[in-house]
Design a protein around this nucleic acid. Sequence first.
DNA 1: GTCAGATCAAATCT
DNA 2: CAGATTTGATCTGA
Length: 626
Amino acid sequence: MTSHIPSLIPKREPGTESDSQAWVSSSSINKSNVIVEPSLYTEFNNVAETFRSAFAQRLNRHEDVTVLDSLTGAIVPVEEEPAPVTYPTSDASQSVVTRRPKPQERSSELVRITDVGPEGERQFREYVRKTRMIYDSLRIFLIMENQREGIGMRRGRPDSKAASLMKDRLLWMNRDKRIVGSIPGVQVGDIFFFRLELCVVGLHGQTQAGIDYLIGSRSSNGEPIATSVIVSGGYEDDDDQGDVIMYTGHGGQDKLGRQAEHQKLEGGNLAMERSMYYGIEVRVIRGFKYENSVSSKVYVYDGLFRIVDSWFDVGKSGFGVFKFRLERIEGQVEMGTSVMKLAKTLKTNPLSVRPTGYISFDISNKKENVPVYLFNDIDNDQEPLYYEYLAKASFPPGLLFQRSSNASGCNCISGCSGGCLCATKNGGEFAYDYNGNLIRQRPLIHECGPACQCPPNCRNRVTQKGLRNRLEVFRSVETGWGVRSLDILHAGGFICEYAGVALTREQANILTMNGDTLVYPARFSSARWEAWGDLSQVFPDYERPSYPQIPPVDFAMDVSKMRNVACYISHSTDPNVIVQLVLHDHNNLMFPRVMLFAAENIPPMTELSLDYGISSEWSPKLAICN
DNA sequence: GTCAGATCAAATCT
DNA sequence: CAGATTTGATCTGA
């Protein structure tokens, strides 16, 4: 072999001299006119072969490799039974932290978690959900803190800060093991809004780099192993065709993201090559632009891919780049990215992808701000068509007499702020952040109402503005009628009201005898939303604010004749939607409106579920359907 | 052990 | 508003 390979190979590899200039300055590579010596193309293969034999020798020499994965031949210890889920206790947060504690080191132990079973997966899912809930509520809390500091001092990165605080509290997941393959509790299609959120759950450990890998010096055989990649279109030579991705290695870019140098077979690039050699699958996360209320990007977990080929090529810029062909492993659920694309098309041109099955393109008949689809491709049931659509719950007029006698509003002509009357009604602070997301659950929210002087865009007016997201009522074999969204629903974001005809207890008792379908708002389980906004694990001295007691909610909602989209939401003891009581157009504490919020980030086309607080055998929704 | 440098960020500035 | 700048946190490798 000749002498001008060096810049391609890591310097620590013995038997090569480091004469990086020879390759980089090679005049045969030219920006405008790409002509490359054939030998340059084959260099990568030579190098790879060199590695292969070098590593093979090392493998034979040392016997420090514990387990060989018989399926893939990978040098990966396989742990059949993952450690039981232990949620971090407050032990880690007992001591008051004045300065930053020593960071917990990243583990060097590679582990593939194979089969945790349905119960295990449910537990891990809950663990992931809880962790993400803390992350999100902490992030929103920090935004609010920033704003409280003053108008000029809006510095700081809430996404970074939240992750960093959680790291200090040992609240990051999967730090004790480096997981190859899927992360328990994280499902294909899960969506994230920040890179650091991926770090917190252990899906991808790099804040910026696209390839995450176990470094060679810490792996059992001295070889780096790639575990996950993020495809976000940052490299001009990427080619993304869904199930097959031509992924460009990293490096060689200047500060503006232009390819300005040849890439080297080191770091993540080498790790990718090694993962390919051993047949080790990598997690793929796609990032793309998606305007939403919290950020302008979204990251979608698309499942496991295998690296089937890698080669060295000359990219569009004329500089050498490494390429990896990734193919999606079969048998996984549909890719999150495909589902998002489908949902996007369904919003604008539904018939192009689903020529049949649509019963209505707006069951609300323009009573909602945005249309609500009705879809059934399973049977001939068209039941939701036959009910009068009610966008807002209707209350018996006689019960709202307090509207005039006790009406009081704020005088904030240019929008509400800290100390106004409406803030006081809410215990001194508003329930929503500036994006309209719920900061923390509380017994009752007082939104600004008709008696207030503030403009419609006041931050204390959220649920009264009605539906914002595109929802679809659909028929499914498992749950009868169900509801899903065509838009991403962000954790803490408002979805819709639960609307029906409100009845007093006396009225309800009469109707119950007739067998009509009644929903009791007081029964909605609050188990999940009590965790929303609870930061006690992050701040040891955190105390939940106390709110004024409100009288027990003691009315029933009759949804047997008039109802809205919410009434088709399925029951689950593991719901992704939470209930929050809100007052905005009257002051009768006995009859608050029942508002629904997303308990977590809900990807498009995912069925919504609520905990109706009753046994799973019966739910109002099931009664409606059957 | 420490520290610089790299990194397909995110928010702000211009 | 896109591009540049600023701010920022983590990881790797020396």
